[in-house]
Each structure stands twice: as structure tokens, then as C-alpha cells.
């Protein structure tokens, strides 16, 4: 197979993302798992770069690798989550079921990917075509790597999904606040770990 540089890089980054993802599941130490997740996310971001979707790539790193995963790590370290023990390898019903679901899921994804990427159908288009500037149907919006046009797209054609997503996030946030809020008269010493966590986690509401 004649590998171009881009192909080669694709395989490298794909390996990194998939391998990182596998390692997240397989590693026993939660910190290691988190680190592999970051690696996987960075791999995905690199794939975005290959697609010349720089904005997405940068956001991927900025939001997921840079912020979300730091919080993950923060919690893992603060809660002092120990490595998973290797016990319980026996096949329980739960395990069997989850394995089955996993296999089903992977198979489903594979089929979908093969179906829609055009690899299976051996169509002329391959994944690199996605990076080409393609007009979004029915609108004068250019879906491109340019941030400006990206923004236009988001705030015009995709306004509703954006708002819905934002509303969902808001709902989730309100839910979290309600859940974590203490009832009046609830004693502090009920679970000390939580309260200690609370005191060290930034609390914007406090001010």
C-alpha cells in the first residue's frame, strides 16, 4: 500500500486514540486511566487537525483535555481512588451482560462506520472529502474550517440545536446544584468526606 504522509499520520493518530481508549478501560490505576483518556482525546484532536478542522481540534484540547480532564484528575486524586483490585474475575451475570452489550455496541459502530464512510461501499469519496468546503444545503452558509463561518453556522442554521444544548446544560447544572444542596438542619458530620471535598472544591456560589 502506498502510504502518503497524511495516511501515515492518520494511522498513527488513530492508533493513539483507539489504543488510548482501550487503555482507559484496561488500566487499573485511575490516574493512569485518566492520563490515557487525555492521550486519546489529544489523538482525536490530531485527527481533527488532519481533517483541517483546526477549530474543533483546538476546542477539543482546550475543553476536554485542558479543563474537563483536569477536573477528573482533581477528583480522582482528591478522593484518593485506589487502583482496582484484580479480584472477581469470575463470570457473574453482570459481567456477562456488560460484555455482551459492549460487543454489540462495537459491532454496531463498526457496521455504521463501514456503511457511512463509504469504505465498505467502495465509493469514490473517502474521509478526506469531508474537509472540502461543502455548501450546507438550503443556506448560504459555508461549513468550513474558518472560525467566522463556523460561528455564522452555529448562530443561524444551527441556532435551535445550540439553544437546546445550552438549555440541557443549564438543566443539568441546576440539577447538580439542587442535588448537592444541603437540606436545612442536616448535620455536617454525616459524611465527612463529602464535606471536606466541598470545602476544597471551588464554590462560586459562596461569594
Amino acid at each position: 500500500m502506498n502510504l502518503s504522509l497524511v495516511d501515515f499520520l492518520f494511522y498513527v493518530f488513530a492508533t493513539i486514540s483507539v489504543g488510548g481508549g482501550l487503555a482507559v478501560i484496561l488500566s487499573r490505576n485511575p490516574v493512569t486511566a485518566a492520563m490515557f483518556m487525555i492521550l486519546s482525546l489529544v489523538g482525536v484532536a490530531s485527527l481533527f487537525v488532519l481533517l483541517e478542522a483546526f477549530f474543533l481540534a483546538v476546542l477539543q484540547v482546550l475543553v476536554y483535555a485542558g479543563a474537563v480532564m483536569v477536573l477528573f484528575l482533581f477528583i480522582i486524586m482528591l478522593m484518593d481512588v485506589g487502583p482496582e483490585s484484580g479480584k472477581g474475575t469470575a463470570l457473574s451475570k453482570k459481567r456477562l451482560l456488560s460484555g455482551f452489550v459492549a460487543v454489540l455496541g462495537v459491532g454496531f459502530l463498526t457496521v455504521l462506520t463501514l456503511e457511512y464512510s463509504g469504505v465498505a461501499a467502495d465509493s469514490g469519496a473517502n474521509w478526506q472529502d469531508v474537509s472540502e468546503e461543502t455548501r450546507v444545503e438550503g443556506a448560504n452558509v459555508v461549513f468550513s474550517k474558518s472560525v467566522k463561518s463556523f460561528g455564522y453556522g452555529l448562530f443561524t442554521k444551527y441556532m435551535l440545536p445550540l439553544q437546546v444544548a445550552g438549555f440541557l446544560l443549564l438543566a443539568a447544572m441546576v440539577g447538580v446544584i439542587v442535588l448537592s444542596k444541603k437540606k436545612k438542619g442536616e448535620s455536617n458530620d454525616e459524611d465527612t468526606e463529602d464535606s471536606s471535598l466541598e470545602s476544597s472544591v471551588p464554590q462560586p456560589e459562596e461569594a
Binding site: 477549530f55 483546538v58 476546542l59 484540547v61 482546550l62 483535555a65 485542558g66 483536569v70 474550517k145 472560525v147
Partner: peptide, 14 residues
């Protein structure tokens, strides 16, 4: 890079 400032934020957050 067109996204210079974002790139800097992204990397430095790492």
C-alpha cells in the same frame, strides 16, 4: 495558525 490565541490557550492549559 488562524486560531493562534485558542491554540495557545489549549496548549498552555495542558
Amino acid at each position: 495558525v488562524d486560531l493562534g490565541i485558542l491554540f495557545i490557550f489549549a496548549i498552555s492549559s495542558l
